[in-house]
Design a protein around this nucleic acid. Sequence first.
DNA 1: GTCAATTCACATGAAAGAGACCACGGTCTAGTG
DNA 2: CTAGACCGTGGTCTCTTTCATGTGAATTGACGA
Length: 406
Amino acid sequence: MKDEIDEFFETYLDSKPIFKNKQYLQANYIPNSILHRENEIKQMAKILAPALKGDKPSNLFIYGKTGTGKTLSAMYFAKKLTETANKNKEMRNLDFNVKVIYLNCKLKRIADTEYRLVAQLAREFGKDIPATGLPTDEVYKIFNQAIDCEKQIIILILDEIDQLIKKTGDEIIYSLTRMNSDLKKAQISIIGISNDLMFTDHMDPRVKSSLSEEELMFPPYNAVQIQQILRNRADLAFVENVIENGVIEKCSALAAREHGDARRALELLRVAGELSERENSDKLTIKYVDEAENKIERDRVFDIVGTQPKQFQAVLFSILVSSKNKKGYILTGEIYSCYKEICNNAGLRPLTQRRVSDILAELDMLGIINAKITSKGRYGRTREISLAIPSNTTKKVMKTLKEKLE
DNA sequence: GTCAATTCACATGAAAGAGACCACGGTCTAGTG
DNA sequence: CTAGACCGTGGTCTCTTTCATGTGAATTGACGA
């Protein structure tokens, strides 16, 4: 036993490293120049440049599919803007600050409700806000005072703003834009980033127009562009010549298949690298890319399954059970009756059908199941549900769920 | 045969509740000088 | 006298329930050709 471990460590230490610096493949790494987004960044600069002169820039709304570089460009731009502003301030002795704040609205417990968003903003300005307990308008007041003590332009980047608005309504944007009229010295501009263009349809037209005074579209990358991006990063991250021919092509092809998602391509490459490192291989071969694809999917599913509440898991379990007993589509009603039985066996209080219906919709959003609403005429209207995860993953999920629900 | 009404089996919305968490301010208690 | 313990009130947040309303096409049934 001991020998085995020793041996493993030795070979591990002896093996030549594949990675030079893995950090360059991480999603939060901001490169010094962003390929194929020069135009978009230039546009952003044009729209937001007034901040440098102390004027409030227009609000900006950025949209585009996932992995098209929206967040990255915004971060990059934020960095540049603050740098320039600081330099400018010293050189010309200006009397105002430019501050860029980035918040991801999807982050649980940080910025996914109105209260938390404003609280987080106030914290950015050094105020101590409790996680709960205060009235929301109190927090607004604190934030207001915190920023209005000196002349400054605040640019607020709200990433995945669609999630926030879908969940809590659009008054947040309204309140934030309206704050400007209450502020004497400071001004706030909002950059909203979303990958769902349609969500603005449900918004109050006034809010909509004030949020998208300017709009910017990020088109998907094509396969060639993704390849270039990957090459660029791979050169930084990997030791030379460890990547076999075709690996980059394969990663980008897989990612391009899904609307040119560069983030996915990078993740594939990174995970493939990690897998080959783990096996002490000194080459990154195509084989590992395939494995990486499976692993990413599996990890994602397990992550969701693990973090969701019990009732979620029970519903998912009943989907798994009923999909095993029946091929083709399953209907909501079938799942619900199966679910009730499972709850009885597990000593769980079953939820109403209303709630289960919502849970099914959420599972669909998460991409664990495919649900399509169809009308069967006289025989009602329901979801046609099928699993969206490969069968070898379902088996494992089923096993863990079974244990959990006992 | 045609066309509008009906009907089913849920979907979808809105509102409100339960229970957990927490801040704030007031009151009570115990320890201190 | 003062610090800390202990309420009560009022706030947010998540998960749920309750009640109400919406929905799309297969089916039905009246109607006219």
